[in-house]
């Protein structure tokens, strides 16, 4: 049985994706939530790379993956900056305590 197939890559990335979703929803720590987002982006990049290898025309998928990685880095920088601002106000980074705005 062939193991290194498109399907196995897809399933690995699916697991990464869903773990990411789960992490986003279940963690209380903002950084934890952010890790979930990183997992999702990582899984998308993996998906693109595997499609590029197995079903694509050329390397466009890999280019997309590179851009996803770059965007993830940019987003991380913004996230860190905002995190510091939130931390200063709330003295903690519990997402549940972000509840001034509601209703």
């Amino acid at each position: 049985m062939e193991i290194i197939t498109l399907q196995s890559f897809l399933i690995v990335s699916l697991i990464l994706f869903l773990t990411g979703l789960y992490t986003i929803v279940s963690r209380k720590n903002i950084i934890g939530i952010y890790m979930g987002i990183e997992l999702i982006l990582n899984s998308s990049a993996l998906n693109f790379a595997s499609f590029s290898r197995f079903a694509g025309r050329g390397l466009e998928g890999q280019v997309f993956s590179i851009f996803i990685i770059v965007l993830a880095a940019a987003e991380a920088a913004v996230a860190l900056a905002l995190l510091l601002a939130v931390f200063k106000r709330q003295r903690g980074i519990d997402a549940d305590k972000l509840n001034i705005l509601k209703g």
Binding site: L21, I40, L41, A85
Partner: peptide, 26 residues
């Protein structure tokens, strides 16, 4: 800052999911 944080986390999740969908379409 709270609003921005929520916006970022929600938007990050949504755009991640979208990226996954784009990969499927690709």
């Amino acid at each position: 800052s709270e609003a921005a944080m929520k916006y970022l986390l929600y938007g990050g999740a949504a755009s991640g999911i979208m990226a996954y969908g784009l990969s499927l379409l690709y």
